[in-house]
Design a protein around this nucleic acid. Structure first.
Lengths: 194, 194, 194, 194
DNA sequence: TATGAATGAGTGTTCATTCAT
DNA sequence: CATGAATGAACACTCATTCAT
C-alpha cells in the first residue's frame, strides 16, 4: 500500500472536513471515513489532531506559495508580476474554493485554539508578499520608503480576495479581481499605467 | 434568586463564550461557570444548547433592531436617517465589539449546524433595512425602481461595517464609517449631497 | 385549593405512570404534568419517589381490601362469599385494568428496588384471604386442617385472575372468572355444590 | 483482547443486569463493570443501549431456537417430539433461569420502550411452534383443521412454563412440566395415548 | 398550598488517543 | 502500513430533591 498516496488522501479528507465543520466539530472518524481508512491510520500518518490540522495548513500554504511564486517569477515586468499575482490568486480560489475556505477557517480557529498557535504564527504569506514587493524595489519601480505601505497593500488585496471567496460567485470574484488589479497598479506604482 | 436577572447573566455569558470559542467548542459548563451558576441552571432557563444559542442570537438582534430603529426614526430628513444609521451601527459595534463578533460567528455556525437553522433563516436585518429604504421612498428621495438596489446597498454597508469590526481598531472603524456615509449618500440619493 | 382532591389527582397520575412505564422510567415531572401540577407540589404532598410509589400501592390495596371485604361480608352463605369474592375481583379488574396492572408492576419493582421493600413485605392480601378462609372454618364448611391449603388456593386464584388481566380481553376474563368459581367451589368445600 | 470472547462476556453481563434490574434501571456502567470493561468498550462492540438489549434478546432467542429444534428433530415419533419439546424447555429454564427471566423482562420492556420495538415484533417462537406443529400434520397425527388450535396450545404451554419459572422452585417446575406433557398429549392428538 | 429557582449526582454517549497485532 | 480493541476524560442532558417565597 502506497504511503504517499494515503497521506494525500488523508490531507484532502481533512481539509474538506475542517473547512466544512470547523476544527472542533470535525472528528477523526469523519476524516478517516472520508479517506476510506481507520482513525488509527490517520494517527499513524499525522499524529494528533492539531498536528493534522497544522499539516493540512502547511500543505495548503506550500501549494499556494509555489504556485504564486512560479507565476510571479514567470512574469518579466513588475507590472506584469502584480497582474500575475492577482490572476493566480483568483485562479487558485476559483478552481478549489474549499482550499480557500479551509485557509480562512484555519485562521479563525488558530485564534481560538492555543494548540494551533503554529498556524497563527505562520508568516508564509507576509514573507511571500515582502519578496514580491522587493522585486519591485529592485526593479526601481517602487521607492524603498514605500516598502511597508506596498506590503500592506498587497496583503490587504490578497486577503480581501480570499475572504470574498466565501460568499461570492465565481463571476463576481472575477470582477473583483479586475478591480484589485486596478487598485494595485494605480495606487502603488510610481509610473502611471497607460 | 431573581429569574430575569439570571437569564440576562446567562445570555451574557453565553454570548461571550460562543463569540470567543465558537459553537462546538463552547461547553455548557463554561457558560455556567462564567454566569456563576450550575450547568443544570442553564438548562432550567434555556433548554438545550441550540436553544440557548438561538436565544442569544434573538436577544442580540432584538437589541440591535431597537437601537437602530430608534435612532433612524429620531432623524427627520432621510439623509439624516442614513447618517444616523451608520452612526448607530458604528457606536454599537465600538461599545460592545463582542456582540458584533457573536453575530458573525452565529452566522458562520448556523451554516454548519442544522440545529441552528432558525438563525440562518432569520430575516430581521433585511426587513429592517427594507423598512428604512421605504422611508426614503415615501419621502420622495428614492425612486421606487431603485428600492431593491438601495436595500442591497444598505445591507452591504452594514454587513461590511460589522465584519470590519473583527480585525480593526476603533479608530479605523470610525474612518470606515465616515467612508460608508459618503458612499450611501453619494450613490443612493437622487438629489446630490452638497 | 383543595388538598385532598389534589392528593387524589396525584395518586391517580402516579398510578397511571408507574403502570405504564415502570418505576425507574417514570419521572416526577411526568406525574406532575399528568396531575397538572409542579414536581415540587408532588413532593409537598408525598415526599420522595419511593414514598409516592408506596402511597399509591397502599391506596390501591386499601381500596381493593375494602371492596372485597364489603362484598364478601354482604354474602350470607360461605359458598356465596366465595362467589362474591371472585365476582368482585373480576369487576374491579374489568372496571379499572390500570389498577391491576399497577399492582403487578409494583410487585415486580419491589423485588428490584430495595427502597420499595415496604411493598414487598406487605401482607394485606394474604391476611385478607386468611380472614375469608376463617369465615369458612367458623361456618363449619372448611375443615381446620385444610386452612393452609385453602388460603393457598384462594391466593392462587386471585393472583392468577390479576395476572390474566394483563393480556386478556374483558370477555375472556369473565369466562376465566367463571372457571375460577368452579375451581374454588368444587375443590375446597366439604359439602359438594349441587 | 479477543473480540469474540469479549462480546460474549458483554452479552452475559447485559443479560444478567437487564434481567435483575429491568431496562431503564440498568446502566451501561453496571454492565461494563460486570464484564470487567469500560462503558466505552461496550459501545465499541454493541453501540447504543437499545441495540445492546436487542442483541442480547436475539442471542438468547437464537440459542433457545437451536436447542429446541435440535431436540425436537432428534425425536422420531411426533409424540416423542412433544415430550422432547417440554423436556428441553424445562431443562433450559432450570439450568439457566436468568435467561428465562431476561426473556420475559424483555417482552415487558419492549411494550414500554418504543426503541425496543424490534423485540416486540419478533416472531421467532410462534414460527418455531408452527414448524413443530407442521411436523405433526405431516406425520398424520394432527388434523390440518386443528393447526391453529394446536399452535395456540403449544405456545400457551411454552409461555406458561417460562412464566412459571419466575416464582417457582426447580422441583415444582419439573412437576408442572409433567403436567404440561399430559396436557399436550391428551388434548391434541387424534390417537389416544395409552 | 404551590411554585420557580437551583443543584449534585448521575446517564448515555462521543471522542481523541494508545497499543498489540 | 493498517486495524480492532480498549480506555479516560469529557460532554450534553436529565432527574430527584431542596428551598425561599
Amino acid at each position: 500500500m502506497d504511503g504517499d498516496e494515503t497521506r494525500l488522501r488523508i490531507l484532502d479528507a481533512a481539509r474538506s472536513c475542517f473547512a466544512a465543520h470547523g476544527y472542533a466539530a470535525t472528528t477523526n472518524r469523519m476524516i478517516a471515513d472520508r479517506a476510506e481508512l481507520t482513525a488509527a491510520a490517520v494517527y499513524h500518518h499525522f499524529g494528533k489532531k492539531p498536528d493534522l490540522m497544522i499539516a493540512v495548513h502547511r500543505a495548503t500554504e506550500e501549494l499556494y506559495r509555489t504556485r504564486i511564486l512560479t507565476a510571479v517569477e514567470a512574469a518579466d515586468d513588475f507590472v506584469d508580476k502584480l497582474v500575475a499575482l492577482v490572476d493566480v490568486i483568483h485562479d487558485t480560489i476559483s478552481n478549489d474554493p474549499e482550499q480557500a475556505l479551509f485557509y480562512s477557517v484555519a485562521r479563525d480557529e488558530a485564534r481560538r485554539h492555543p494548540e494551533l498557535k503554529e498556524i497563527e504564527e505562520d508568516r508564509t504569506f507576509p514573507q511571500l508578499f515582502a519578496e514580491i514587493v522587493d522585486m519591485g524595489v529592485q526593479a526601481g519601480v517602487l521607492g524603498s520608503d514605500d516598502v511597508l505601505l506596498a506590503r500592506g497593500a498587497v496583503a490587504t488585496v490578497a486577503t480581501g480576495l480570499a475572504m470574498l471567496a466565501r460568499d461570492t460567485t465565481v463571476e463576481a470574484h472575477a470582477i473583483a479581481s479586475e478591480g484589485a488589479k486596478r487598485l494595485l497598479l494605480g495606487s502603488l506604482l510610481r509610473t502611471p499605467v497607460p
